[in-house]
Amino acid sequence: MNWVTGSNLAILGIIGASLILLLTENWRLYLVALAIQYLAVFWLISFEWNFGLAAVKLVVGLMAAAILGASHPETDLSYKHGKGGNAGMLFRFLTAIEIWLMIYAFSPSVAGWLGLSNTAVFGGFLLAGMGILQIGLGSGRIRPIVGLLSCMSGFEIIYASLSSSVLVTGLLALVNLSLAIIGSYWMSFPNGEVRE
């Protein structure tokens, strides 16, 4: 059986990138992983949509990564309150594996209900699950934002198989970019005490 297919490579890309996003505290690596994650999302969506419409997801994702990168999130990325170090990393890694196994177990039944390919559903839920994990474990501002962006990307992979509305694509692009801008804004004013 040939496992090296485009969709499986995209899934591997999602697994690798989302794991790096969860574990690393290096902001350059973090942003590269976010960009790779969006590339994998684009790859999966391009199986369902035409290239031009799918490319919107990639462009929006890369723009979101650039917006977040512009605010240098190095201090915001570190795990605080004893969540750092090797034990913390091992804990996060094991939790991620647990999430993968859980999603692997239930995605075929969801795919059956929605009438979609297992790859799209598995990839979508994988991203959504890892996103929620990031929101839960991150203590700063950037991790919840990237977690939300991951959740939305996961949802977009599945929803792309159900609908290809231009208005939804446009509004979701606007939501993703706005989330990135909010993340960047929060990092610029970490205490929220803005004076205009």
């Binding site: 959740c151 939501v175 989330l179």
Partner: peptide, 10 residues
């Protein structure tokens, strides 16, 4: 606030 509201969308 942002997290719960955003998660409602999907």
């Amino acid at each position: 606030y942002l997290t719960f509201m955003t998660l409602a969308v999907p």
